[in-house]
Amino acid sequence: MKAKYLSLASRSMQNSLAYRVSFIVNMSASVFYILAMFFLWRAIYAHRTSLAGYSWNDMKAYLLVSFLSSTMLSWYSESRMSSRILDGSVAMELLKPIDFQAARLAETAGTTVFEGGVSAVLVTIVLIVYAGVMTPHSPAAWIAFILSFAVSVLIKFGVVYISSLFCFWTSSGFGVAWARAAITNLLSGALIPLAFFPPWLRATAYFLPFQGIVNAPASIYLGQATGAAVWGTLLVQVFWCVVLWFLGRFVWRFAVRKVTIFGG
């Protein structure tokens, strides 16, 4: 990677340290959300041992992965991307010898390293304190999960980046971000596992990139995907990651005309 993007990532990490309090508040919101989900599912599992192939233990692990995913590339990174477009500072970016998309990725990466660090600590605490949560079966599965999780963040970046570009046409970022979040949360499996969906929706979800954000890493974590299926899952994730990157470039080419042709 070029030094300029590394440098950008490092400044972004420093910058996010200035927002550590806001991050903690944000993260505690995620914690409360996941607690609510935890108690909801516990009530559901009170009188049954298995639901759509998920045991209560599976479900707890699933919630953990979903929580981890929600803490990465949080609201902060998303709103930074959209506000850059909305407040017109995108023009300043165009005045630098730097690729807009790569620069946004570098910034997001810098912030995500910080977010990831905090989440890793939280998750370790949960795993130690609450021994009932299962972990991947083997070191190989751990590695596969970490890889899959890393790619899932890149997919999330692709989705968030493209949706932010729609801010060139809207005059507010909220609607775009909310719509984006609603679609992603449903189709990624962040709200409920895809296995609970009606067949037609499940089939649709598997054909879309969103499942690579929560469903794919969760299936590796839970050991639902083993052997060749792990490779298959990872490949599909990488495929979407690449597709979204180029789709992002394509949308950008149109979006930037709002500035370069129509003057913002």
């Binding site: 300029k4 440098s7 420093q14 910058n15 927002y19 500072s89 010898p97």
Partner: peptide
């Protein structure tokens, strides 16, 4: 407008520009 990063020291923005 400013091209300075709001929450990091000024010198850090300048060294970022050096890299850019």
């Amino acid at each position: 407008r400013t091209q300075l990063w709001w929450d990091i020291p000024v010198i850090e923005t300048l060294s970022l520009l050096r890299d850019i």
